[in-house]
Design a protein around this nucleic acid. Structure first.
Lengths: 356, 356
DNA sequence: AGCTAGCACTCTAACCAGGTGAGTGCTAGA
DNA sequence: TCTAGCACTCACCTGGTTAGAGTGCTAGCT
């Protein structure tokens, strides 16, 4: 149904439209891309493409514009992954140079992605490493709430409020000793086992009191993926003109609701290998049906057990997919390696070049 | 120079303009406000007000619009503080009901403020309470960086990276014991004194190694005000129409740069008593010269020693100052009391009414 | 069968009146 | 000191015209 030339036409339309932001007509197409046929021929092709749902026209007598389906085909079939420019490579390297600690890495990554793509960047916190627990702190908050703080050997700090029967300061002190004695030095999984085992040896009353605390620790330990995300480049929303216009509100809304962002990134796990793209209405969160998400898992899946985390950008459906995808992929790989090396306690100072 | 009626006219112009978003003319003024004079008289008054710089007109035959100076006078002289509606009162109370922990309180406050004012809300983290230190954790990051984590009796967690000569895991363990032994249980101030004292007893080599750690702790302890801010209601930027239009970019930019936000709030300390308003160009951060900031210190200054923290909203110069100011003040007072009560380990369940 | 040239048709965007009305400043009079 | 009246200004709306880009279709060419 779609011969080579039609595909080529589709690709050309996408490219031109992305660049010019205006519906693209048959004449312009033959001129800008050296298609050796006449505009009339192209018109016929475009008519077919339109019938099939890959293109559409805003009104009769206007040029064509790709539909979501059109972009989809483009991304799947046509997008040859643009290699990054040297400048971009260098930017990635120097941006991360000297990053210390997970917070810092994540924050820098968000900025970096936003700066390179001119879109809004979303970076999910990496799942906490399955590193041993260093310390557990318990703090009495008001009325029956206990704040449980867990520190891991990697410096990651996690906290959660446990609701449990009121205790006085002395109780808490004892409990703290008990919990730390049992769990510190163990990997999260083992620590939870141990705590549960000890819990079972207590009398029912004691068990009822301590169970919530143990459970909070279990929750923190068991989280295979972090729920925290960091966003960067929000000003890009306003900077890049009409482009975003209609997207600003729903996007800001989504950013305020971190949960939505997580769902957006979540999907990307599906395609471990590379970059996952969701275009327009493919998105199940309807307010964002005019935006695309380009994301990638960046945690080294090889050394899994630690769960995965994604990063990506979100922008208008009319985006430069090839280069955005290339950038996201490159950053994901780099950050993955960087973190991997860092938690392996190596010092990463140089970064060669990305093999495709 | 400005008799009573002229002031009244200015006030009327501000009120009408804020409501209608359109330049207001002399006839409309006499009709909507029961000024018992003719439009012509008002015109003369307005001419004077314009000469003095309180009003301006977009073009010759249009109505008048307040200038920054006009708003300023309005705020200083005319704004009778609107009492909050019952619904708003209730909203405040119920919004904070059941808030647990500082993080939660701050987050809820931001949402609350944004929702009540329809502007962008900024809430500075309260300065850490001068509560005793509970635990200090040290984690070796890559190459000569040590992550120092401090937990206070209130559950507040603070962390900072100290650059210091490389040590191995054993060194760190010893150091951790040393630091905790010296500092835990003391108030931050005392703890730092103690650490410094102990530091001085060491030989020069040891001193050089440990000094950076002690200094990071000192920095965290000494911070009289927190550098963290939380923002809420960003989607309001897009929701409330043309209103914001031109402000979106600079505001998003400012939000991305937390430092700017801090500076915006910082000033409010000047006027401890109540609400601080900065209008348009009064703002030293020029990109925001078309926005106003309404802020207030919310930490109970009585129980000072703990430094102060502010909250506020930022919106277009054309905002409803009286009610925004009232809301900000009410929220600031409520949150202040709430936090005060909470850290005093009391359970705040009911909130009477706000005395002006 | 596929491509091209030509042509009539459609629809938007831009431009250019001209009219309308809100609002002003000024002057003269109460 | 205020008011009434009047001439003037200027944004904005309306409607009609034009220009141009782009299409679909048909007929002819390879």
């Amino acid at each position: 149904m779609l011969d080579d030339r039609k595909l080529e036409v589709l690709g050309a339309v996408v490219v031109d439209y992305v660049q010019s932001r205006e519906p693209v007509g048959s004449r312009a197409l033959v001129e800008r891309h050296h298609l050796d046929v006449s505009p009339a021929t192209i018109r016929n092709d475009m008519a077919v493409l339109e019938e099939e749902g890959y293109l559409t026209q805003p009104h009769t007598s206007a040029g064509r514009v790709p539909t979501d389906k059109g972009y989809r085909l483009f991304v799947d079939k046509l997008a040859s992954v643009k290699p990054l420019s040297v400048a971009e490579r260098r930017a990635i390297g120097s941006f991360m140079q000297g990053a210390v600690g997970v917070d810092d890495v994540v924050a820098r990554t968000a900025r970096l992605l936003a700066q390179l793509t001119h879109h809004v960047a979303i970076v999910q916190y990496p799942a906490p490493a399955p590193a041993e627990l260093r310390h557990i702190e318990l703090v009495r908050l008001a009325a029956g709430h206990l704040l449980v703080i867990v520190i891991r050997a990697t410096g990651e700090v996690d906290q959660r409020v446990a609701e449990c029967p009121d205790m006085d300061e002395a109780d808490v002190t004892v409990l703290r000793g008990w919990v730390n004695g049992a769990a510190v030095g163990l990997t999260p999984g083992r620590a939870v086992e141990e705590l549960r085992r000890l819990l079972a040896t207590l009398d029912p009353a004691g068990r009822r009191r301590l169970a919530p605390v143990v459970e909070s620790i279990a929750e923190m330990a068991g989280a295979s993926t972090s729920e925290r995300v960091v966003v960067g480049g929000v000003p890009n929303l306003a900077r890049f003109g009409v482009e975003y216009e209609a997207l600003i509100e729903p996007l800001l809304e989504a950013i305020e609701e971190q949960v939505v962002l997580l769902r957006l990134l979540g999907e990307s796990a599906r395609d471990n290998a590379g970059v996952y793209v969701r275009i327009g209405a493919e998105n199940e969160y309807t307010p964002l049906r005019e935006t695309s998400v380009v994301s990638s898992v960046y945690t080294p899946l090889a050394s899994s057990e630690g769960g995965y985390a994604s990063l990506g950008v979100v922008g208008p459906t009319r985006m430069d997919y090839p280069s955005t995808m290339a950038t996201v992929r490159a950053v994901a790989r780099y950050v993955g390696r960087f973190l991997g090396a860092q938690t392996a306690d190596l010092d990463v100072t140089c970064w060669g070049h990305d093999e495709h």
